[in-house]
Write a protein that binds this DNA or RNA. Sequence first.
DNA 1: CAGTTCTGGTTGTATAGTACAACTTGAAGT
DNA 2: ACTTCAAGTTGTACTATACAACCAGAACTG
Lengths: 143, 143
Amino acid sequence: MDATEAVESIQREMTAFARRARASAGRMHPELSLVSYTLLGHLEERDGCRATDLAAHYALDKSTVSRQVAALERAALVERRQDPDDHRVQVLHLTEAGRAILAQVTESRRAAFQERLADWPEEDLVRFAGYLVRYNAPGTDRP
Amino acid sequence: MDATEAVESIQREMTAFARRARASAGRMHPELSLVSYTLLGHLEERDGCRATDLAAHYALDKSTVSRQVAALERAALVERRQDPDDHRVQVLHLTEAGRAILAQVTESRRAAFQERLADWPEEDLVRFAGYLVRYNAPGTDRP
DNA sequence: CAGTTCTGGTTGTATAGTACAACTTGAAGT
DNA sequence: ACTTCAAGTTGTACTATACAACCAGAACTG
């Protein structure tokens, strides 16, 4: 396999994966869509952030984030805290329930991935992870 | 990074990728969504097939496929041929226009991937491609 | 400091993709 | 012949999304 073939293969495989991911994520965790899951994950990781940050980070429109957050708040998974320094800003935080459900879904996803990757040597796992990070890193756009 | 961390990282990165793929595919080729592209690709590869086969292969509802195909037919990218042996069945085929646009989008996607991966050493490309194939191979379901 | 521009966020509107259920038509099995 | 199965279509509903118009607060500038 040369470089050109490899690029074509990467393209095909990434696309194949993308096509399936959302639907199967939905089937696995009907209670938390892929988007919501991602946003909650970000909140956990950053220990709270602004809606604008989420939009920028995930290349989503601010209106999309606004509605997602509204739904998450309705479900009592996140809460908004007014920033005292800037009254336009609402800092989003996970609630206890949010943290719990995030942990649960993460665990179940982790188990699925783990199972799928069970027979991979550690060396390959580490390299694969590195490649993905590197692949995803550059822009925020385009697959 | 140990194996567990790597698995978590793979999970996160694959998810991140999946989230963006559809949208950016749409931005790149407004004329052909990721789904349509995939379906056309399948038709090319198999040199025609039934709608039911597409549904089964991509885990889509038959109604979804029906509408997708209807749109593709409206756009004159595919045509239906009654199966003479079974009058329920319509065998789908690419039209010339369908073949052309598929080729064009494939090329433009290839270029985008190529650009993104331009500065990777060939060795890494080949290994990455191998990992993806291996990752995607097992089932047809779940990320 | 007053007016302008910028930034964070919400709401209205539209679209795509999807599923599920009900239905139609043709094929197969008993 | 009657029932059951399979392929597709259509009606309906929901989710994720974008874009545009808007509001409110902050920052900049003459």
